[in-house]
């Protein structure tokens, strides 16, 4: 499926492997939490990249200790209205300091991309190419932000405080 990373459509080198399917010897695979928990030693012993996919009711804590083993964590939106992955992804980035790919999968729509990126997602899986292409412009629709989040953008309050300090220190204008 088309994948957006860094505001570009890129080739997806990862393969989802169902819970019953055989795991290929080579190439990056993404497995479910259940399979990871059941076949952990087999998966660790495999000499290829590994990713994990969490359902929206599966928590960041469930994989927190294993994060260094994953190159991708995919979080599933069963419907765009299910907002739990927004918390999960922030916890993975901010609390557990995960630095690999955080991929939004499932019901991914253009108009939620800004929120997703702010919370720490850096890869977005779309159902079709056209939708993905049209979605790229959504990242830049609104520049100002009021909150600090996992994208480390400077909040309005921080910018204002900087401006005020610059003024006080005489470094302004």
């Amino acid at each position: 499926m088309p994948l957006i990373k860094n505001k570009q459509i890129v080739a997806d080198t990862w393969q989802y492997v169902g819970d019953e399917a055989a795991i290929p010897a080579d190439g990056g695979v993404i497995v479910s939490l259940a399979r990871w928990q059941a076949e952990r030693s087999v998966l660790v012993g495999r000499n290829a990249p590994l990713g994990i996919r969490l359902k929206s009711d599966e928590s960041a804590e469930a994989i927190a200790d294993d994060l260094p083993r994953f190159d991708v964590v995919a979080l599933e939106f069963p419907t765009f209205k299910d907002g739990r992955p927004y918390s999960t992804v922030r916890l993975l980035r901010e609390r557990h300091h995960y630095t690999g790919e955080l991929r939004a999968v499932g019901d991914i729509l253009r108009d939620q991309l800004q929120f997703m990126r702010r919370c720490g997602f850096d890869a977005f899986e779309f159902a079709d190419e056209t939708a993905a292409e049209k979605a790229i412009s959504a990242f830049d629709e609104i520049e100002a932000v009021y909150q600090t989040a996992a994208d480390w953008r400077r909040s309005a309050a921080m910018i204002r405080t900087d401006t005020a300090n610059a003024f006080l220190n005489g470094t302004c204008g």
Binding site: Y86, F115, R118
Partner: peptide
């Protein structure tokens, strides 16, 4: 008001 406006994490609450 400012903190809650377009809050990235809390725009799709239950």
């Amino acid at each position: 008001r400012q903190w809650s406006t377009l809050h990235p994490e809390f725009s799709f609450l239950p």
